[in-house]
Protein backbone atom coordinates (compact mmCIF):
# COMPACT_ATOMS: atom_id res chain seq x y z
CA UNK A 1 0.00 0.00 0.00
CA UNK A 2 1.27 3.45 -0.91
CA UNK A 3 1.80 5.61 2.15
CA UNK A 4 -0.79 8.38 2.53
CA UNK A 5 2.03 10.90 2.84
CA UNK A 6 2.78 10.46 -0.88
CA UNK A 7 -0.79 11.33 -1.79
CA UNK A 8 -0.79 14.30 0.58
CA UNK A 9 2.49 15.58 -0.85
CA UNK A 10 1.08 15.33 -4.36
CA UNK A 11 -1.99 17.21 -3.14
CA UNK A 12 0.20 19.96 -1.63
CA UNK A 13 2.22 20.28 -4.85
CA UNK A 14 -0.92 20.54 -6.99
CA UNK A 15 -2.36 23.13 -4.60
CA UNK A 16 0.85 25.18 -4.74
CA UNK A 17 0.85 25.04 -8.55
CA UNK A 18 -2.75 26.25 -8.47
CA UNK A 19 -1.73 29.18 -6.26
CA UNK A 20 1.13 30.05 -8.62
CA UNK A 21 -1.21 29.90 -11.61
CA UNK A 22 -3.72 32.09 -9.83
CA UNK A 23 -1.12 34.70 -8.94
CA UNK A 24 0.76 34.83 -12.22
CA UNK A 25 -1.67 34.16 -15.04
CA UNK A 26 -3.30 37.11 -16.75
CA UNK A 27 -6.25 35.51 -18.53
CA UNK A 28 -9.33 35.49 -16.31
CA UNK A 29 -10.49 32.07 -17.58
CA UNK A 30 -7.10 30.58 -16.72
CA UNK A 31 -7.34 32.12 -13.25
CA UNK A 32 -10.64 30.34 -12.85
CA UNK A 33 -9.09 27.05 -13.96
CA UNK A 34 -6.32 27.51 -11.36
CA UNK A 35 -9.03 27.70 -8.70
CA UNK A 36 -10.46 24.42 -10.01
CA UNK A 37 -6.97 22.91 -9.75
CA UNK A 38 -6.77 23.94 -6.08
CA UNK A 39 -10.20 22.43 -5.41
CA UNK A 40 -9.03 19.18 -7.02
CA UNK A 41 -5.92 19.12 -4.85
CA UNK A 42 -8.07 19.48 -1.73
CA UNK A 43 -10.34 16.67 -2.94
CA UNK A 44 -7.32 14.39 -3.22
CA UNK A 45 -6.43 15.13 0.41
CA UNK A 46 -10.04 14.40 1.45
CA UNK A 47 -10.05 11.02 -0.31
CA UNK A 48 -6.64 10.14 1.17
CA UNK A 49 -7.77 10.86 4.73
CA UNK A 50 -11.02 9.06 4.05
CA UNK A 51 -9.12 5.89 3.21
CA UNK A 52 -6.60 6.35 6.01
CA UNK A 53 -9.23 6.55 8.75
CA UNK A 54 -11.74 4.20 7.10
CA UNK A 55 -14.29 7.00 7.35
CA UNK A 56 -16.38 7.38 4.21
CA UNK A 57 -17.72 10.82 5.14
CA UNK A 58 -14.53 12.23 3.57
CA UNK A 59 -15.84 11.04 0.20
CA UNK A 60 -19.19 12.69 0.92
CA UNK A 61 -17.33 15.98 1.38
CA UNK A 62 -15.62 15.47 -1.98
CA UNK A 63 -19.06 14.99 -3.50
CA UNK A 64 -20.20 18.31 -2.00
CA UNK A 65 -17.05 20.10 -3.14
CA UNK A 66 -17.72 18.91 -6.70
CA UNK A 67 -21.31 20.20 -6.51
CA UNK A 68 -20.16 23.60 -5.21
CA UNK A 69 -17.49 23.74 -7.92
CA UNK A 70 -20.14 23.09 -10.56
CA UNK A 71 -22.33 25.90 -9.23
CA UNK A 72 -19.31 28.18 -8.98
CA UNK A 73 -18.25 27.40 -12.56
CA UNK A 74 -21.73 28.17 -13.91
CA UNK A 75 -22.01 31.55 -12.17
CA UNK A 76 -18.36 32.47 -12.65
CA UNK A 77 -18.41 31.76 -16.37
CA UNK A 78 -21.60 33.83 -16.74
CA UNK A 79 -19.78 36.72 -15.04
CA UNK A 80 -16.79 36.22 -17.37
CA UNK A 81 -19.12 36.31 -20.40
CA UNK A 82 -20.58 39.61 -19.15
CA UNK A 83 -17.12 41.04 -18.52
CA UNK A 84 -15.98 40.08 -21.99
CA UNK A 85 -19.12 41.61 -23.47
CA UNK A 86 -18.81 44.90 -21.58
CA UNK A 87 -15.06 45.48 -21.54
CA UNK A 88 -13.92 43.57 -24.65
CA UNK A 89 -10.99 41.98 -22.81
CA UNK A 90 -10.14 38.93 -20.75
CA UNK A 91 -6.94 40.37 -19.35
CA UNK A 92 -7.31 40.93 -15.61
CA UNK A 93 -4.92 43.88 -15.75
CA UNK A 94 -7.37 45.76 -17.96
CA UNK A 95 -10.32 45.02 -15.69
CA UNK A 96 -9.47 47.69 -13.15
CA UNK A 97 -12.62 49.68 -12.46
CA UNK A 98 -12.10 49.43 -8.72
CA UNK A 99 -8.47 50.52 -8.91
CA UNK A 100 -7.63 53.94 -7.49
Amino acid sequence: MVSPSYYLTLSAILFGLGVIGFLFKRNIITLFMSIELMLNAVNLAFVTFSRQWGELSGQVYVFFVIIVAAAEAAVGLAIILLLARNRQTLNVERINLLKL
Binding site: S3, I13, R51, Q52, G54
Partner: peptide
Protein backbone atom coordinates in the same frame (compact mmCIF):
# COMPACT_ATOMS: atom_id res chain seq x y z
CA UNK B 1 4.31 23.40 1.76
CA UNK B 2 4.95 20.02 0.13
CA UNK B 3 7.89 19.48 2.48
CA UNK B 4 5.85 20.24 5.59
CA UNK B 5 3.09 17.90 4.48
CA UNK B 6 5.51 15.10 3.59
CA UNK B 7 7.32 15.60 6.89
CA UNK B 8 4.22 15.76 9.05
CA UNK B 9 2.31 13.01 7.30
CA UNK B 10 5.06 10.43 7.74
CA UNK B 11 4.17 10.47 11.44
CA UNK B 12 0.73 9.38 10.32
CA UNK B 13 1.97 6.13 8.83
CA UNK B 14 -0.43 4.03 10.82
CA UNK B 15 -1.84 0.95 9.17
CA UNK B 16 -4.88 2.05 7.21
CA UNK B 17 -8.30 1.11 8.48
CA UNK B 18 -9.73 -1.99 6.77
CA UNK B 19 -11.36 -1.15 3.48
Amino acid sequence: FAWWVADGASALALPAAPA
